[in-house]
């Protein structure tokens, strides 16, 4: 896999001069002392927020039952951060229509991808692995999300919740209407089951993609 260092060169993440390793260290220090080049860079901030979220998830998994469940795979976390490093790139500006001649509103592609990722992550039992966003035109987009589902949880309700919330988020926060939203469950992670919606431990298969 290509590392974040390679994918964001020559200027680090978002041209900040700081690569994924440096941002991880900054996150570990609680973002102190403050570094303006990082805190003022939206791509760095998005990546830092993801690092914080993954850190919280990892602590939850370890605290859940360290003896019975394997520790989170460091390579898995690294690969996920590499993916996020690519997704946070600002990319194109997507304009809102009909703002008049003297006003222009745009949302960056990177902001939209992170919105979709965080919306999926907010669904209990889901963890987004990859966000695919294809801008069909200035008003329509196709979304492909790969997600990991907590072991022991039913797959279909979680996938449906992710799809519904992603559609709502796209409509509320961007100029784009979803043409299609595909959710692929391509992994299962170990986590504490919720009080409801539990089932026997399930392994997702690529063929189980709800559409």
């Amino acid at each position: 896999m290509t590392s974040a260092n390679d994918t964001t060169s020559p200027g680090g993440v978002g041209g900040s001069g700081y690569d994924l390793e440096a941002l991880s260290a900054y996150a570990d220090r609680g973002r102190t002392p403050a570094i303006a080049a990082i805190d003022g860079n939206p791509e760095c901030v998005a990546l830092l927020d993801s690092i914080d979220r993954l850190g919280a998830l990892t602590r939850d998994l370890v605290a859940d039952d360290a003896a019975a469940q394997p520790a989170p795979d460091e390579n898995w976390i690294r690969a996920l951060l590499d993916t996020i490093s690519r997704e946070v790139r600002a990319g194109r500006d997507i304009p809102f229509p009909d703002t008049g001649e003297d006003a222009r509103y745009v949302v960056t592609e990177g902001a939209i991808r992170q919105l979709l990722r965080e919306t999926g992550d907010a669904v209990d039992g889901a963890l987004v692995g990859r966000v695919g966003l294809r801008i069909v035109d200035e008003t329509r987009a196709e979304v492909e999300l790969s997600i990991s589902v907590a072991a022991g949880r039913r797959l279909d309700p979680i996938a449906a919740a992710v799809r519904d919330r992603v559609a709502a988020a796209l409509r509320r926060s961007t100029p784009l209407e979803p043409d299609r939203i595909d959710i692929t469950i391509d992994d299962v992670h170990v986590a504490a089951p919720a009080a409801t919606d539990t089932a026997a431990p399930t392994t997702a298969e690529p063929g189980s993609e709800p559409r």
């Binding site: 939206p42 901030v45 998005a46 927020d49 979220r53 600002a90 500006d93 001649e101 003297d102 006003a103 222009r104 509103y105 745009v106 949302v107 960056t108 990177g110 902001a111 939209i112 992170q114 919105l115 965080e118 919306t119 992550d121 907010a122 988020a169 926060s173």
Partner: peptide, 26 residues
């Protein structure tokens, strides 16, 4: 935002770039 900017700067053209949309329900 456009209204607030114009309260300060007058009736100027305004460009707003939304660079991050944070989800609070995490």
């Amino acid at each position: 935002l456009t209204a607030r900017v114009r309260e300060v700067a007058g009736p100027v053209p305004v460009e707003i770039r939304v660079s991050r949309i944070h989800v609070d329900r995490l």
